[in-house]
Design a protein around this nucleic acid. Structure first.
Length: 414
DNA sequence: AGGATCACGCACG
DNA sequence: AACGTACGTGATCCAA
């Protein structure tokens, strides 16, 4: 306790993290219901497709091998079939990752089959087979929310991880439709809209970002307009996509190499792009420089709620380590502050008399999203209350916006 | 033989 | 290599 007080961390401990413990306990005990039959049907279909694809891949490879082994897969693709390697793993082996395979796609029909196999195999092995086995006697799945697992202040989820359930594409939608409200109940899902960019706007005081959020404009279109000298209405889909990549890359301290790859442009174009971005949003450059300089002097960064991350590597003589620490410094302030905000919201939700009367209970947190379960007749009311609590939990230099949905399944609630 | 650990790949925000 | 996580599978290591 004396050490916490000395670091000014006792308030964070007493008024945020300690009260949060019982909220997390309640969420873990509550769990989420799943549709066993929907899981079974989905697994049945996926299993059949995996069998068919396995036969086709082995046939195209001209011999049997274990297609779940990256080592054997590399041998087939690059030795046997003589495809051109397009990247290495951190360990120095020839990579067979999604990114590499997509570049090989035109060269051989086996490539598309492998990509498809990987998607289905991931679904089967990580979600469709294990999750139904983890159902308790109550027909529900109970995760653990780990409060001390991350460097930034986020929660993590394990046993099973319910923070990485597929959501993208038709397969993701179908997966989330397997998670349901219990009998007589509905789910309400509320997620913070672009909370990390809003946190960045708040800390940096960047005029363009603040204005765009204040007017509830399309932030990526606005960035594109600034970048390409246009009116936001005149921005093309491609230009908006580029701006979106930059906006998100910004939060991680993305360099020109990664940007070039993401946008399929040259290194020089990417460098120009980044320069122009910071020239026109110069407050951001200042904010980043100040943040890193203060972190170097103090040895740590501080989030909205006063959470700290020590970053001794900022002083590393190894350039790569030092650069990584600089990116971590920036990202931690943003990601960690967003984590602070949703944790405060969780406390507000848990303490809210109205939600209590409605018999609404928090069941999941997925970094910027809260999922509530409530009796059917109360769900709409509870959702609206949840949204209000999340939006008003703290006042930043920009408004907090929350998107809301309700439904009988997690997919419908989105 | 079999548990521990690493490498790889990939799901999410 | 652009930040933060969890986990399944295969490959490899190694103490009892």
């Amino acid at each position: 306790a004396p050490r916490l007080e000395a670091a000014g961390l006792d308030r964070l401990m007493r008024s945020l993290e300690m009260p949060l413990v019982s909220v997390l306990v309640d969420m873990e005990r509550a769990g989420i219901a799943i549709d066993q039959a929907a899981f079974a049907r989905f697994l049945d279909e996926v299993g059949g497709q995996i069998e068919a694809l396995t036969a086709r891949i082995v046939d195209l490879a001209g011999g049997d091998f274990n297609l779940r082994s990256a080592q054997q897969m590399a041998a087939v693709l690059f030795d046997k079939l003589k495809l051109k390697p397009a990247g290495k793993t951190p360990g120095g082996a020839l990579s067979t990752s999604n990114e590499v395979l997509e570049r090989l796609a035109g060269q051989h029909p086996i490539v598309d089959a492998i990509l498809e196999f990987r998607v289905l195999e991931k679904l089967r092995s990580t979600y469709l087979e294990p999750l139904p086995r983890l159902t308790g006697g109550d027909g529900r799945i109970h995760t653990h929310f780990n409060q001390l697992a991350t460097a930034t202040g986020r929660l993590s989820s394990s046993g099973p991880n319910l923070q990485n359930i597929p959501v993208r594409g038709p397969q993701g939608q179908r997966m989330r439709a397997c998670f349901t409200a219990g009998p007589g109940n509905l789910l309400a899902s509320a997620d913070y809209s672009q909370v990390e960019l809003r946190v960045l706007a708040h800390f940096s005081r960047e005029k363009n970002l603040i204005e765009a959020f204040a007017r509830d404009e399309d932030i990526h279109a606005r960035t594109a307009a600034i970048l390409f000298d246009k009116e936001p209405g005149q921005v093309s889909a491609d230009e908006r996509r580029s701006a979106k990549t930059i906006n998100f890359g910004l939060i991680y301290g993305m360099g020109p190499q990664k940007l070039a790859r993401e946008l399929s442009i040259t290194m020089n174009q990417a460098k120009e792009f980044i320069e122009r971005y910071f020239a026109r949003l110069s407050t951001l450059r200042e904010f980043y420089d100040n943040l890193v300089e203060e972190a170097r002097q103090s040895g740590f960064v501080t989030t909205l709620a006063g959470r700290r991350r020590l970053l001794p590597e900022l002083h590393s003589r190894n350039q790569q380590m030092a650069s990584q620490a600089r990116r971590q410094a920036i990202n931690t302030v943003i990601q960690g502050s967003a984590a602070d905000i949703i944790k405060m919201a969780m406390l507000a939700v848990a303490r809210d008399a109205e939600l209590h009367k409605l018999k609404a209970r928090l069941i999941l947190q997925i970094h910027d999203e809260l999922v509530l379960e409530a009796p059917e007749s109360a769900a709409e009311h509870a959702g609206a209350r949840l949204r209000a609590l999340m939006q008003n939990v703290t006042a930043l230099a920009v408004p907090l916006k929350v998107d809301l949905g309700t439904g009988f399944t997690w997919a419908q609630a989105h």
